[in-house]
Simulated scan of single mutants.
Amino acid sequence: MAAETPQERLRNNATEIAAVVVTGIWMAALFAGVGWWLGFLLFGYIVVVPLIALLYGDDDDRTDWWGSADGDW
């Protein structure tokens, strides 16, 4: 089995990476005392992470976020 390239690893873990980035940004904003942390938290978890899961996630990610994997919404 050939070793994965960094691009393949990024694509395979895009949903998890997006969740960590969203969490890091809103927590940094919270501890820095800026007022937009809650808005970013909600936007990140309601819009950004599910969108990344839909675009780059595997079938299990799509099923977790959007329901059935057969495309019947």
Rank of each mutant, 00 (worst) to 15 (best):
M1K: 13
M1G: 13
M1D: 12
M1E: 14
A2L: 14
T5H: 04
P6D: 11
P6V: 14
Q7T: 11
E8H: 14
R9H: 12
R9A: 14
L10R: 05
R11P: 08
N12V: 11
N12L: 14
N13K: 07
N13M: 09
N13C: 09
A14G: 02
T15R: 06
T15F: 02
T15N: 04
T15E: 10
I17H: 09
I17S: 10
A18P: 01
A18Q: 04
A18I: 06
A18N: 03
V21M: 00
V21I: 04
V22A: 00
V22H: 01
V22S: 01
T23L: 04
T23Q: 05
I25V: 13
I25C: 10
I25F: 08
W26F: 12
M27Y: 02
M27E: 07
M27F: 02
A29D: 08
F31M: 09
A32S: 04
G33E: 09
G33C: 07
V34I: 12
V34D: 01
V34C: 02
G35K: 03
W36D: 07
W37H: 01
W37A: 00
L38G: 06
G39H: 03
L41I: 08
L42N: 00
G44A: 14
G44L: 11
I46W: 06
I46L: 10
I46N: 05
V47S: 05
V47K: 06
V48E: 01
V48F: 02
V48P: 01
I52L: 10
A53R: 05
A53H: 02
L54I: 15
L54V: 15
Y56Q: 11
Y56T: 12
G57K: 05
D58S: 14
D58K: 12
D58N: 15
D60F: 10
R62A: 06
R62D: 04
R62M: 04
R62K: 08
R62H: 06
T63G: 03
D64W: 07
W66I: 03
W66Y: 05
G67I: 09
S68P: 00
A69H: 10
A69N: 10
D70H: 04
D70R: 05
G71R: 03
G71T: 04
D72H: 10
D72S: 11
D72E: 12
D72A: 11
W73G: 10
